[in-house]
């Protein structure tokens, strides 16, 4: 495993730790999109169906279990925890899941590496992950106050896929890996979706101002 891949996984893990900290310690999920979190559960469940069938490494299995467990528990807290659920911005989190899930599923049926259940689900998970942040970004844009934890959470989540892009470049040129258009292009799209957010995040950080996205 190269350093970019590890950095990607660690920023991903850190983003989840940050979000869980906000939920468990501050008892708040203000500014967090339940829609996006539910999409991540679907992403992990469909991508890691091979967990019980194929073993890659201890690291790989543990990380999969952590991502599955934490994403499900985040959704549980936001939906059912008696204090946390009251901080959820239900009225502004109105992005419809189906508008993302359905096109991604159709695309995965049409464009995939092999027409098998595992491959189609895996491809679907990549397409869906690429756009799963959209409800969260819409929610941030509608929020007057974005707290630091939420801003940092979204930033780390974006940084994660950016590191993966570097990892794929490294694997292609240094480790002589094959061309893999499906993860590369969906990963590129996923990172590009954050471009606007990155711009305002870095700007607010440089000027030591509170993060605010223009409506």
């Amino acid at each position: 495993m190269n350093a970019f891949r590890l950095a990607g996984d660690m920023t991903h893990l850190l983003s989840i730790i940050l979000l869980l900290h906000k939920i468990r310690a501050m008892k708040s999920c203000a500014g967090i999109s339940l829609r996006t979190q539910e999409l991540y559960v679907i992403v992990f469940v469909t991508r890691y169906v091979d967990l019980s069938m194929k073993y890659y490494s201890f690291y790989n299995s543990i990380m999969k279990i952590v991502f599955l467990g934490t994403s499900i528990s985040i959704v549980w807290y936001m939906r059912y925890h008696k204090v946390v659920k009251q901080t959820y911005n239900k009225d502004v989190d109105t992005f419809r899941h189906i508008f993302l899930i359905l096109p991604c599923f159709v695309l995965a049926l049409l464009i995939n590496r092999a027409f098998t259940v595992i491959e189609v689900l895996w491809t679907f998970s990549l397409y869906l992950e690429a756009v799963a942040i959209l409800p969260q970004l819409v929610l941030l844009q509608r929020s007057r106050n974005i707290d630091n934890l939420t801003g940092n959470y979204v930033f780390l989540l974006g940084a994660y896929r950016a590191f993966y892009l570097l990892n794929w470049i490294y694997r292609f040129f240094i480790e002589n890996h094959q061309v893999r258009w499906i993860p590369w292009l969906s990963g590129l799209l996923q990172t590009a979706i954050y471009a606007d957010f990155f711009y305002y995040y870095i700007k607010s950080w440089k000027n030591r101002e509170k993060l605010k996205l223009p409506a």
């Binding site: 991903h12 890659y56 790989n60 999969k64 002589n176 890996h177 094959q178 893999r180």
Partner: peptide
């Protein structure tokens, strides 16, 4: 090109 298995990623 070698193994190039992206399924080993997360």
């Amino acid at each position: 090109p070698s193994n190039g298995n992206v399924h080993d990623e997360l």
